[in-house]
Simulated scan of single mutants.
Amino acid sequence: MAKILNVSHLAKHYTSGTKELTVLDDITFDIEEGETFAIVGPSGSGKTTLLGLCAGLDRADSGSVALCGIDLSTLNEDERAALRNREVGFIFQNFQLLPTLTALENVIVPLELQGIKNPGKSGMDLLDKVGLADRSHHYPSQLSGGEQQRVALARAFSSNPSILFADEPTGNLDEETGERVVQLLFELNQEANTTLVIVSHDLELAQRNQRILRLRGGKIIANESTVHL
């Protein structure tokens, strides 16, 4: 299988007052196309920082990230944004829906950015898959947290991304709602055969992936396969 993400000797530091804080230290791993991959660790272990670097939302201080075969350090801001728009989907803990757009309009934003004509039908199909076709004209403020995250799921898959980054996708949901969202996430992912990278502190959710990368204090302490019977 081809590698969709190659991370090599990645490091990230922040300056706090007179102190330099190491957030990530010598991180190396890769992910194959179609793989489901979890990044876990306690708060402050560098999980979200690592996800941002892998997706090209931020730049590393040293080391390299190659996404879909392209070294992100060779791209400027606009080129990285274009690559994300083409290849990457996102799901965030706080949903990040646009409040002035309806559920359907939120779902089709990535398609419109790609210049796809008449994206409404595929947007409605996706809302139907997440059980929200009847809520397509509702605004985020009219939806529950679980419904907003299901809209975010539909949006993430709307442009058929090669890789999808999910940052604590159930972090703001109760257990039952979170389970529904996770089930939909894996169903949609299997159907689309997207590479899935989930950042979570939930070990149960992590175990549902094919591989788990464990971080502590900005370092990798394990990179292991999970056994699915």
Rank of each mutant, 00 (worst) to 15 (best):
V88Y: 07
A166D: 06
L215C: 06
A55E: 09
M1Y: 10
E33A: 15
S64M: 08
H137D: 14
P42E: 06
P42H: 00
L98R: 02
Y14T: 08
D174K: 01
L173A: 04
E176G: 06
Q114P: 02
R216Q: 15
N189I: 01
K19V: 10
D26H: 05
A222N: 14
V88W: 09
D26T: 08
L205K: 03
F90D: 11
S45D: 03
E224A: 09
V40I: 15
Q207W: 05
R180K: 13
D78W: 09
P140Y: 01
N85A: 04
N172Y: 02
R211F: 06
A55Y: 11
E147G: 02
G63W: 00
L97A: 09
E175I: 08
N160Y: 12
A152Q: 00
G89I: 08
I163K: 05
D128W: 06
R80E: 11
I27F: 08
R155P: 03
E204T: 14
D125A: 12
R211L: 05
Q183A: 07
E79P: 01
L5Q: 05
R211W: 12
G218Q: 04
T22C: 15
K12L: 13
A82W: 04
L127R: 00
G171H: 09
M124W: 11
E35V: 02
S144R: 12
G46A: 03
A66G: 10
N172V: 06
I31F: 04
L184E: 02
N193S: 12
L196Q: 04
E35K: 05
I27C: 08
L205T: 02
I221M: 09
V65R: 09
A55G: 15
D71M: 09
R84I: 04
S159I: 04
T226R: 01
H9L: 10
Q210F: 10
R150T: 02
L53E: 12
V197G: 13
Q114L: 15
L188S: 05
T194A: 12
A156M: 08
L127N: 00
E187S: 14
E87T: 12
V65A: 11
Y139K: 12
P110W: 01
T36R: 12
G63C: 03
V40A: 10
T48S: 15
T48Y: 01
V151K: 02
D26P: 04
F90C: 11
G120N: 14
A206F: 00
S136K: 15
G17S: 01
L111G: 02
